[in-house]
């Protein structure tokens, strides 16, 4: 009865005949993003007279991309379930500090690498427990752990910077290349591809979407809703651990502010990629494009000799325009 007042979404009353796959892709969110990306890329390429392709620039671009893309993959999954994690930046700083200490103390990679990932899993689990067992809304819970993890960074580091990180991480993740791509980037692409496949083709992946679409129905269908949520927070923790590792590879230095502000970039990449904050809709491919656009904007302003400070302005505008447009397209036919 209230359908009138609450608004009903526009629906085709008859199945529309199948469109060409290409046409559908271009009309999709991912298609729009790809076009945006290409336009940006071409503009920067022309404007920078090819500086975009200088080796140093490409490397730093690709590694920066990897550091954002990996947690963004986890963030996509968390947001798909209808949650959010704003503690990622602090968590990255904390893992970098703890793991960095291990490395600085002379432990080898065989110990350090699992330690980074386990720490991430642990901190992710802490978030999950507060959210699930404590029934604290995800944004509040992770806002809390954001502060707590940041404090722990200070406790771990004291007031000193951690600088004696062995260069081995840089060597492995940044300098070593397979083909044109640094290992860090390959790793990021592998993670994204793996989870894109997982989300698309695996039963558990589809359950994430089901949960985000209709939690009540998913519960009634017998899905273990809480387990899925818990797993998603642990996952973004592990990914944050991995990103911390790459971050030390890019700049072998941990300071108390490491990772601060990072989470907003990650969320921006995910949102730009078309994942809806209400859950249940979004893809890793979208996040891939979203991350690339975010990085390209930041890189582009430098190359174009625009003041680098414009990148924030541009990024903000791109988010507003792209989300605003897609809301205008998909807006429910609403009552007055």
């Amino acid at each position: 009865m209230m359908s009138g007042a609450r608004g009903r979404t526009r629906q085709a009353s008859k199945p529309i005949p199948g469109q060409a796959a290409l046409g559908r892709f271009i009309a999709s969110r991912e298609g729009v993003l790809l076009v945006t990306l290409l336009v940006l890329g071409v503009a920067i390429d022309l404007g920078s007279h090819g500086a975009l392709w200088y080796r140093a620039n490409v490397t730093s671009f690709l590694v920066d991309f990897a550091i954002t893309a990996i947690p963004a993959t986890g963030m996509t999954i968390v947001i798909l379930t209808g949650g959010i994690d704003v503690s990622t930046g602090s968590m990255l700083g904390l893992i970098a500090a703890l793991g960095g200490k291990l490395l600085a103390a002379g432990w080898g990679l065989a110990v350090a690498v699992p330690a980074f990932l386990l720490l991430g899993a642990l901190f992710g689990l802490v978030n999950a427990i507060i959210i699930i067992e404590g029934a604290v809304p995800p944004i509040v819970a992770t806002l809390g752990t954001l502060s707590i993890y940041r404090m722990l960074v200070f406790i771990v580091l004291g007031s000193a910077w951690l600088t004696d990180i062995p260069p081995v991480l840089t060597k492995i993740f940044v300098t070593t290349r397979l083909g044109p791509l640094p290992v860090a980037t390959l790793l990021a692409l592998a993670v994204m591809a793996g989870f894109a496949i997982f989300l698309r083709f695996f039963r558990a992946g589809r359950h994430i979407y089901a949960l985000g679409n209709n939690e009540e129905a998913a519960r009634l269908a017998g899905l273990d809703v809480l387990r899925i949520k818990r797993a998603s927070y642990v996952l973004i923790g592990i990914f944050t651990g991995l990103a911390a590792l790459l971050n030390l590879g890019e700049s072998p230095l941990v300071q108390t502010s490491t990772g601060s502000g990072f989470v907003l970039t990650v969320i921006a990449a995910v949102v730009l990629g078309g994942t809806e904050l209400s859950g249940g809709r979004g893809t890793i491919l979208g996040t891939l494009f979203g991350t690339l656009i975010v990085q390209l904007v930041q890189d582009g302003v430098v190359l174009l000799h625009i003041q680098p400070f414009w990148s924030g302005v541009l990024l903000g505008l791109i988010i507003l325009v792209s989300v605003g447009l897609s809301h205008a397209w998909h807006r429910p036919a609403e009552a007055a």
Binding site: R206, N214, G280
Partner: peptide
């Protein structure tokens, strides 16, 4: 009259949520 559905999943997936037919690796 107003069916309980997963809006963004496909029709096929809607019908099988929780009871998917899976391969040995857990692929749908």
């Amino acid at each position: 009259q107003e069916p309980l559905v997963y809006r963004h999943l496909t029709v096929l997936e809607n019908m099988f949520v929780g009871q998917e037919i899976c391969g040995p690796a857990g692929t749908v």
